[in-house]
Amino acid sequence: MHARATILPLSLDRVTYARGGETLIDGISVTIGSSSRTVVLGPNGAGKSLLLRLCHGLVAPTDGAVRWAGADAFGRRDTAGRQAMVFQRPVLLRRSALANITYALALQGRLERGERDARAREALASVGLAHVAERPARVLSGGEQQRLAIARAAALEPDVLFLDEPTASLDPGASRAIEDAIRAIDAAGTKIIMTTHDLGQARRLAEEVLFLCRGRLMEHTPAGEFFEHPRTPQAAAFLRGDLVA
């Protein structure tokens, strides 16, 4: 299924991020393979979003290193070009939905100008937005904007797609559409690494779980095992819905 060459696995080697004397990510070492959907869980302020940004290269670790196995094969610059990220609040450019995607494709530079339009329309259709292709992205509804952000990321056909709370502040219908889109992207061979605060969503989407607490990695386990038999008391408390400090 994942036949094509990829930059994965991703390995974090004692990755630490400190700011203002506070250690927000504390010596995380983990290897994330290409085979399953990874969901990062943890209480608010555990460092979930920050971990994604460190992995994606938006934030540099203050100590330790983030390594992509394919870095040598593809080169440093191309490693960045083989990742995409969808943010909690989608940032869409003030142009049409379609142009938002062709812009990203042009930056990536893999497709010729003539091929970008077709790819962008394909991506829009895959999230059910073909009918708003020419509409300004900023006037779309919240759910549509997030689907457009996902279509824009998926059109890049990245090896890895990071999603940071992709359904925060969306209603259930819009959330379901996002989850369907995530499954489709996974089925097309892109590795999914996402955060969510919605345990139901985590149960539906996760194949493996990274559980963070106060910037430390507490568990890295298959999803079934994590939800049935959490190993740490923090995870057990988190799953019960207790406040975890």
Partner: peptide
């Protein structure tokens, strides 16, 4: 507002100049 998204898409600061002027 755009920094993280444009960086994620691979636009350096210089490449972001025309994008931001247009937006």
């Amino acid at each position: 507002e755009y920094c993280e998204q444009l960086t994620s898409l691979g636009a350096g600061r210089l490449r972001a100049v025309p994008t931001l002027l247009w937006d």
